[in-house]
Amino acid sequence: MDDRSFVAAQDFVLDVKRHWTTKVYPALKAEYRQKADRAGAEPQTVAEVADLVADSPLYRGYAWLERHLQRMKYSGRYGLVPYHAARRQALLARLDDLPPEQRAETDPEFAIPKYFTAIDIHQHPGGVWRDDIAGLVYERGARSTTPLLGAKHKDLHGRFTDRVAAAFGQARPARILDMGCGFGKSTGPFWEMFREAEIDGIDLSAPCLKLAAAEAAAAQASRVRFRQMDARATDYPDGSFDLVTSTMLLHEMPPKAIGALLDEARRLLAPGGRMVHLDFWLLPDAFHRFIHYGHARRNNEPYMPPFAEMDVAAELSARGFRNVSVEPFAEAEGVDTADSPTWRFPWTVIAAEA
């Protein structure tokens, strides 16, 4: 396929997704509200919400669009996977054209956990780890994950980094670990904000790490490196970092793995160090939980519901963390985190101190 056809098709998917976000979701929410009012009792469980709306033609259309827009985006005739596969050699040459000291540290014998390889998360064929071009596919797909609306604004990664920096105040972390860094989009704002810090990004996916290293080299970022490593069991000494962070990692792990990650983060933090995660957690009522769990099912995200049901604050306190906070996060100016009129992820900042 030619570039023009690919871009047009991806723009079409994004435009329909905006319609789904701003028109279909509000209509579904209003229909649910009317049915709940007529029932005379506010549903308290996901099953009770499903009893009201699961058979609604509007909900079925909403769910169909969510599932199949993602499929079109990745696997359709003009999808991300066939487009990048047709350009494989040229794309990979860019990633390989780095001096050894700037390349990601990867290991072809690295044992990737089964929970990560068992499913094609996001409907990404083969997942983000199997194919050498998977990082490039993932990066392009991330551009249309959350179609934000309105005026130009700093993206959510930049806003999250600003929030982390504000918590440190005049102090500056000297060593930062970005767990589950993917292709480096979450890491970039940290090296821009904390230019004197040494920053490590770790991830399970070698293709993503190779792209992260290439992007860092292109940005002339210094004091940053990317390593293939399991965040549950790293090779760093105790107390190695002042800041341990992640973005959209916890919801892609089963509860036992999350617990192991939190234990490792606690071990890695220097006394007084901070751990801050940006993820999907705060769901104010049964309707939002129903919508979130449906999203998980339709987008191959099986660990979202058990993570949403964890008592995160209790888990952190039990592991010896102090000053635990779990707070909503606005990914853009003007977003109503309590009751958004349009669809949004339940962005949440989970923070604690060692």
Rank of each mutant, 00 (worst) to 15 (best):
L262G: 03
G272V: 04
V312W: 04
A308M: 10
H292V: 00
M304E: 11
A265C: 10
R266A: 13
D263F: 02
M304W: 08
P284W: 09
G272W: 04
M310F: 07
R289H: 10
D279R: 00
P306F: 12
W281T: 00
A314P: 00
D279Y: 01
A270Q: 11
L282V: 01
M310V: 02
F290E: 04
Y293F: 15
A296G: 15
F307L: 09
K256Q: 14
P306G: 08
Y293T: 10
M310L: 15
L261S: 09
A270L: 05
D263W: 00
G272F: 02
E264V: 04
A270F: 09
P305V: 02
H288C: 07
A257K: 09
H288Q: 14
P305L: 04
G273N: 09
R298W: 14
L278Q: 09
L269V: 09
Y303E: 06
E301V: 04
A260P: 07
A265K: 07
R266L: 03
H295N: 13
H292C: 05
P305H: 03
F280L: 15
L282M: 10
R267V: 06
Y303K: 09
L269D: 04
W281I: 01
R298L: 15
A296Q: 03
R298A: 08
A260W: 03
E264L: 02
N300F: 06
P271E: 04
G294F: 00
L261T: 13
R266I: 06
V276D: 11
E309D: 15
A265S: 14
F307V: 06
F287K: 07
P306S: 05
D311Q: 07
V276N: 07
E264N: 01
M275A: 14
N300A: 15
A313R: 11
G294L: 01
V312T: 10
L278H: 12
I291F: 05
A265D: 08
P302L: 14
L283D: 02
W281G: 06
W281C: 02
L278F: 12
E301Q: 12
A265R: 10
E264D: 12
H288W: 02
F307P: 09
R274E: 12
V276G: 05
P254S: 04
L278C: 06
P254T: 11
M304A: 13
G273D: 07
R298H: 14
P255H: 00
